[in-house]
Design a protein around this nucleic acid. Structure first.
Lengths: 320, 320
DNA sequence: GTTTGACATGAAACGCGTTTCATATCGTAT
DNA sequence: ATACGATATGAAACGCGTTTCATGTCAAAC
């Protein structure tokens, strides 16, 4: 394997000059430039990126922490990030955590050890204190409303979005409203729970623990939800489902069982994924791709943190 | 930022000793070991991964080339790769290409420049000659039947799988069979086309160009397929759909329009994604997650190439 | 009593490109 | 005629950890 020294020797110049030519710096005579390029070709020289990384203290790599890469929500978010990365000549290091804290920790360590220039956390399990501990090593960006001022974030106001969804159902005549989430202890779920309680209180609707469905993530989970509903004496008349995937599963299952949507069960999904559009599911649109792009931009911005609140928009279709 | 030298100075040892301690090499006295660890703590020292990478000539990064990260097919494949990577302490660099050759090229260059140790290409657009040109720089692994002996691969025999699907439809009484793919010029599509032609010839069924549906990838594309079918004078009685996503879209659309599946249209999907199971779609199961794991293992194996043919299994459900 | 191997430690070379600083030339402005 | 800025080039320091090689103990083996 040849290195810059070999090239310099062959071209009869200094390594500095070789470096200048390769990086297109000015002040190199045409004569030497050609000699260098010639030597590069002759020796089949290729720069060693690790040496550059070490020297520059920069890798043009951004870490992306996410729990699963096979869920449309994260898939779409990732696409947005990836497209922005492409444009800015960065590459992404994928850190799939399955929501394990120690895997997430590995991402922080990569930042600490300068293997990545920044870190995007799509869904967090670590405590805020841990994140604060690592911000000194590079930009950490969250897809979640920030608690500390030290990190950038691009987030959805889940409280507001959820409240809006509840209100939409209420004004359409639905009083008994349940909801369906993935992780009860997830950050967004807590905001939603607050919204839910506040809403019930405001409308003086009694709270029913059974109206909260926890642990549903994928299309096929929709069936379990419907099974649950069927066994209830007083099932909710409407359901807010925090993933269109699950919403689509529920709607499909209802069809199969002859249940009318929205007559027997009204549905509001979340994300506005293609499947929701296609199946005519009323949903809260989350501009995931744009969020991804913004997250990326924040991740390559040193010294300046920013917070961006993303608006969620109700898309009315046929399930309410 | 402190470096190993600072630590050595503070601990009153050589950098060699510090390196030994940090890498848990033997032959270091307990006394010095403690002094070093103490100094590491006091200086808040963190190793610089780029220096290690340069020195060792290895990064523990594997590049993963795929066209889209928001499609379940690649999402699941990626999950398999990511899980294996997790286990072996590697990280993945995601290279999303949108099927652009120049983006794929960037992945090769990363390998050439030692930024990644190996490369997994989930779906290829570059010519084989290009790949052969780069194998000298590290393992390149394909999710496709290899033409050159120089690369490892984990692949599906699409010809065989397609033939099997055709046969299944034929033995169930379907004679006019069409199929639906994503990219006509894709590698797997060509194998399928051969299988299709060979099959038609064998059964002496005339070929109809209109029975090939090209350019369908996602759930929502299913509707377009059904629209096409409706406008045909003699639509096929059965359809092989190379993605369960599209198959699910077709089935849903048929339901909406009152078309009976399989009576009016039989469907065989591909992948055996959760949605296929849930919707009762007959499909050809592809063990994507396992394929991903195997791809990863091949990618970290230097000096020894291997080929693994993955078997596709017919899962009979209710759409045939 | 001497050889041998295990244990311990550090200097220096190595992996490799970037960047600063010093030096030098040449033309144009004063 | 002098000065200054633009152009050109290279030595050396810097980023930082790993590894080889040389050297030195000390105890067990012969």
């Amino acid at each position: 394997m040849t290195n810059i020294k070999d090239v310099a020797k062959l071209a009869n110049v200094s390594v500095t000059t070789v470096s200048r030519v390769l990086n297109k710096h000015p002040y190199v005579s045409e004569e030497k430039r050609e000699a260098v390029l010639d030597a590069v070709k002759k020796t089949n020289y290729h720069i060693n990126r690790n040496a550059v990384n070490l020297s520059k203290g920069k890798t043009f790599l951004i870490g992306v922490v996410l729990p699963y890469s096979d869920h449309p929500y994260f898939g779409t978010l990732l696409k947005g990030i990836a497209n922005a990365a492409l444009e800015h000549n960065y590459k992404l290091v994928l850190i799939q955590t399955n929501y394990q804290k120690d895997k997430e920790k590995e991402a922080f360590i990569m930042l600490e050890q300068k293997q990545i220039d920044g870190l995007i956390i799509c869904s967090r399990v670590s405590e805020w204190e841990v994140i604060e501990e690592y911000v000194i090593y590079g930009p950490i960006v969250l897809a979640e409303k920030n608690i500390t001022e030290q990190v950038s974030s691009t987030y959805i106001d889940h409280y507001q979005a959820f409240y809006q969804a509840l209100n939409h159902l209420y004004t359409n005549g639905y009083q008994s409203i349940g909801y369906c989430i993935n992780r009860k202890n997830g950050v967004s779920s807590q905001q939603r729970e607050r919204a839910y309680h506040d809403f019930l209180k405001e409308k003086q609707i009694p709270f029913d623990q059974n109206y909260i469905f926890d642990g549903y993530l994928n299309f096929e989970d929709g069936e379990r939800v419907v099974q649950q509903l069927k066994q209830m004496k007083k099932p909710p008349a409407a359901l807010i489902v925090t993933s269109d995937q699950v919403a689509a599963g529920i709607v499909t299952c209802c069809h199969n069982l002859g249940l009318q949507v929205p007559k027997d069960l009204a549905i509001i999904g979340f994300d506005n994924q293609p499947i929701a559009k296609y199946m005519g599911i009323t949903t809260m649109e989350i501009p995931l791709s744009e969020m991804g792009e913004n997250l990326f931009l924040q991740a390559i911005t040193r010294e300046k943190v920013s917070q961006k609140r993303v608006n969620v928009q109700l898309i009315e279709r046929q399930t309410v």
